[in-house]
Design a protein around this nucleic acid. Structure first.
Ligand SMILES: [Zn+2]
Ligand SMILES: [Zn+2]
Ligand SMILES: [Zn+2]
Ligand SMILES: [Zn+2]
Lengths: 135, 135
DNA sequence: ATCGCTATGTTATATTATAACATATTTAAT
DNA sequence: ATTAAATATGTTATAATATAACATAGCGAT
C-alpha cells in the first residue's frame, strides 16, 4: 500500500472514510448529516476536518460544485496541482491524472513571466455514457 | 471599439458597468450593495444578471473566490475557456490570455479519449510585487 | 507539573445562492 | 392593432455554504 506516514485525527479519519468510500463528490452538509451518528454535530467540525484533509492532499475541493472528493492520485498528496473531468449531464467527476498535462501546467509561465506553485483545472463536457445516450 | 452586437437589459447593463469599472473581482453582495441606489434591491436581481452576463461571456466567475470579473479577452466572449492568475498574497487576479495555453487545453483529451467543450483554470502564486516584497 | 500546540465541542452568525410567484416589458405572429 | 409567447423584472422568503468566537480537552516536550 502506498500509505503515507501521516496521522489523521479522529474526526479527520471519520470524514475521510466517508469521502473515500463515496461514489461521487460529497457536499459538506451531506457529510455532516452522515456523521451525526458518530457524534459530529456541527458545521465547524466538518469544515475543519475538510480544511486539513485538503492541506494534506488527501481530498480535493471541486470548486464549481462545492463538493469534496478523495484523491486517488498518489502523486498529488500535496494538493497543489489538480485537474478534474466533469460531465455536464450526469455530473460524474473524476480526477485527471495525466503526466503531460501536469508537467505542462506546472511549468507554465504567463506572459509577464509569473510562475505558479498551485493550480486547479476543471474540464467540462459529456462523459462517454452521456455522449452515447445523446446520439 | 470591439463592441459585439449583443444587447444588455437594464439590470444587466447596470451590473456589467459596475464589474467592468472595478479594479478587482466583485462579490455578488457587494454588487448588490452598490446598485441599491439604482433601484436593484434583491439578490435574485443580481444573480440573474450575473448568470446571463456569464452566459454571454461578458464576465467570468472566479470559482475559488465566488467573485465576478469582466472579460478583458475579446477571444472568449463564449466564456467556455477561462484561465486566471491569482496572487495568494494580495489577491490580485488577472485573466490569462495565452494562445498556446488555450490551444493546448482546448485540444486536450484525457486517457479515455474524452474531449471537453469548456474549462476553467485557476493558477495561484505570488505576483511580481508580492514576490519582491518578500525578498 | 506546566507550557505550548493541536484538536474538539458548541453556539451563533455571516455569506452565498435559489425557489416561488407576481408583474411588466419586449418581440413576433396573426 | 391584438394577441400570444418569451424574456426581464420585482419581491418575499428560505436554502445552502461557510466562518467567528470562545470554551474545553488531549498530548508531547521541557
Ligand atoms: Zn489528487
Ligand atoms: Zn455523464
Ligand atoms: Zn474572458
Ligand atoms: Zn500579489
Amino acid at each position: 500500500m502506498t500509505q503515507k506516514f501521516e496521522f489523521l485525527s479522529k474526526n479527520q479519519q471519520i470524514i475521510y472514510d466517508i469521502i473515500e468510500n463515496a461514489k461521487e463528490p460529497l457536499k459538506a452538509y451531506s457529510i455532516l448529516y452522515s456523521v451525526k451518528k458518530k457524534g459530529i454535530k456541527a458545521p465547524p467540525q466538518v469544515y475543519r476536518a475538510l480544511d486539513r484533509l485538503i492541506k494534506m492532499g488527501k481530498i480535493h475541493k471541486i470548486e464549481s460544485k462545492n463538493a469534496f472528493i478523495a484523491c486517488k492520485n498518489s502523486n498529488c498528496t500535496i494538493s497543489n496541482a489538480t485537474a478534474f473531468s466533469i460531465c455536464d449531464s450526469c455530473e460524474a467527476i473524476t480526477e485527471i491524472s495525466n503526466l503531460k498535462l501536469s508537467k505542462y501546467l506546472a511549468n507554465f509561465q504567463d506572459d509577464t513571466g509569473m510562475r505558479y506553485n498551485k493550480y486547479n483545472l476543471e474540464f467540462f463536457g459529456l462523459c462517454r455514457k452521456c455522449k452515447k445516450n445523446k446520439s
